[in-house]
Nucleic acid binder design. Sequence first.
DNA 1: CGTGGATTTGAGAGAAATCAAATCATGTGG
DNA 2: CCACATGATTTGATTTCTCTCAAATCCACG
Lengths: 242, 242
Amino acid sequence: MANNLADALLRKIAVSNRLDPEDVGALEKLPIERRAFGARETVVRDGERPTQCCLVIEGFVFRAKTTFDGQRQILSLHIPGEIPDLQSLHLGIMDHDLVTLTQCTLGLVPHDALKQVNRVRPNVAAALWRETLIDAAIFREWMVNVGRRTGLARMAHLLSELRRRLEAIGRASNGAFRLPITQAELGDCLAMSTVHVNRVLQELRRDGLIEVERSAFQLLDQPKLEQLGQFDPHYLHLSPAA
Amino acid sequence: MANNLADALLRKIAVSNRLDPEDVGALEKLPIERRAFGARETVVRDGERPTQCCLVIEGFVFRAKTTFDGQRQILSLHIPGEIPDLQSLHLGIMDHDLVTLTQCTLGLVPHDALKQVNRVRPNVAAALWRETLIDAAIFREWMVNVGRRTGLARMAHLLSELRRRLEAIGRASNGAFRLPITQAELGDCLAMSTVHVNRVLQELRRDGLIEVERSAFQLLDQPKLEQLGQFDPHYLHLSPAA
DNA sequence: CGTGGATTTGAGAGAAATCAAATCATGTGG
DNA sequence: CCACATGATTTGATTTCTCTCAAATCCACG
């Protein structure tokens, strides 16, 4: 089953979970509707009650909240294989937006089908539950990032995290990865202004820690960058044994 | 079964979930070991691999991360009926500390027992999963709070949230609730200095929005306070219908 | 080759941190 | 029952990081 729509999902889940062949089979049989999206399209909106979940097959998406006075906080960035709105399976109402960062191929999976798989295959349910718990673990780390680190450390931390997560699914190597994101959007991830993002990136470049060529990020000195960002990957729970 | 150790849990879960009598029965039969803790005791430490979860029966606990340079970010406050480390059921390794805020009665529930209940009663599994998803929803809102609001709004938001959550379990009425927390701890929740917490509280008092008498909080003008904090409770997912 | 978004630069303003010290409780032991 | 120690709150003064405002490049694309 080389080109199943669930392939990205299976690869991603395999990073943090052990699944039986039967579990894999059940996931491969999920009814997934492929849908193409342009960049910066809102997929699901705050306040809506979705009846399906969105699997990222290709591209990047993010979740965000907008305050009454129009400020935006990006809550998470999502890479292929993730289901950014998996929480809608049990929460019903969205408390934030789901937006494409880039052109995307998303896979729409009906809640009913997911609930059915969860009932029949408890291992799958546990794995999906675990994915939402890792999601929450990343929220916690981002809260620390936004609340307790300087602009420079915040950026170093974010880049270190992305490198690790992208490496785990084979989309980064030697500290190089492609991520089409603007400085304004980085600012919304890190709760800082575009101007400050720009200056922080310049400083990281000046110090020989990174290179950025449009959407091509290159982390030059991983140890130093991770140290600067106080980055400890154990919150990512990347190993299934954990 | 008037005084079961699971009572607080059942009451809390009933706020956001519908359970069958059989589900309730299964939860009541959980083996729960009662343990008393003093204030500011670390219950579970970052990096540990717990084999049980902690149910808050009485008192308050919080979760926190400490950065390499010793700064602390409180990630969440927990009230009776909650299981603050429920994520350990599927994540294995702790990525933060669990600490008592006040004297506490906690109920220790073995992972095995919880996993068994989850297998036998899918409704219970769904409810517990949902609890961890609400936990994550609160993280998201706190991220916005810390990242995007002024000190005054941050404090107003936190107090508004606490009022709602405590009301839901019958521990706040007319905006009054007891919460023994220092200004330094409030600062760690809101990512601001103790000095600033003090000044913000003074401003809220001066404006007639709150009164604080030691650990007794009294919110005087709920609508104004919620407006100031840009507080919209839908992220709390308090109604089961959601 | 113009156009609009993204990036970069400069200067000034502001929210909150830090530093330092005083005051206020609370609880303890003599 | 009071002196004293300890922790929490409060106040004042200064510093700093980051934002805001404004304008200049830069760049991809039609």
